[in-house]
Amino acid sequence: HHHHHGSGALAALHAEGPLAGLPVTRSDARVLIFNEWEERKKSDPWLRLDMSDKAIFRRYPHLR
């Protein structure tokens, strides 16, 4: 159930192989992290948004 927010940013994801479903670039990863943060913020208003490279690598090590 993907609803768009204002920016309408869509992340490019790997379609197949071992990385299927994972973001292709760091900016794609940022979109995913932001979208998930927006969702989680509803139940956790104090949740901090962390889109640093460090956060991205921790989450998606293949982007190193």
Rank of each mutant, 00 (worst) to 15 (best):
H1A: 13
H1G: 11
H2C: 11
H2I: 15
H2D: 10
H3L: 10
H3S: 09
H4L: 09
H5M: 14
G6C: 14
G6V: 14
G6Y: 11
S7C: 14
S7G: 12
A9K: 14
A9C: 13
A9S: 15
L10R: 12
A11T: 05
A11K: 03
A12C: 14
A12E: 15
A12Y: 09
L13P: 03
H14M: 03
E16T: 12
E16Q: 10
E16G: 08
E16N: 09
E16H: 10
G17N: 10
G17W: 04
G17T: 02
P18Q: 06
P18Y: 05
P18G: 05
L19I: 03
A20W: 07
A20L: 09
G21C: 06
G21S: 05
L22P: 01
L22C: 06
L22W: 04
P23Y: 00
V24H: 04
V24M: 11
V24G: 01
T25K: 05
T25P: 00
T25F: 04
T25N: 06
T25M: 04
R26E: 07
R26K: 15
S27V: 08
D28F: 03
D28H: 03
D28K: 01
D28Q: 05
A29P: 00
A29Q: 00
R30L: 09
R30N: 04
R30K: 10
R30W: 06
R30E: 08
V31E: 05
V31D: 05
V31S: 08
I33T: 02
I33E: 01
F34H: 06
F34P: 00
N35T: 11
N35P: 00
N35S: 10
E36K: 03
W37V: 02
W37T: 01
W37N: 01
R40L: 13
R40A: 13
K41N: 09
K41S: 11
K41Y: 08
K41H: 11
K41Q: 09
K42R: 10
K42T: 08
S43K: 14
S43A: 12
D44I: 05
D44Y: 10
P45Q: 09
P45W: 05
W46L: 14
L47W: 13
L47T: 11
R48E: 12
R48D: 08
R48M: 10
R48C: 11
R48Y: 07
L49Y: 06
L49W: 03
L49A: 04
S52K: 05
D53T: 08
D53C: 08
D53G: 05
K54C: 11
K54L: 10
I56A: 01
F57I: 13
F57W: 06
F57R: 06
F57N: 14
F57V: 12
R58S: 14
R59I: 10
R59L: 10
Y60C: 01
P61K: 03
P61S: 02
P61D: 02
H62M: 01
H62P: 00
H62Y: 09
L63F: 03
L63M: 03
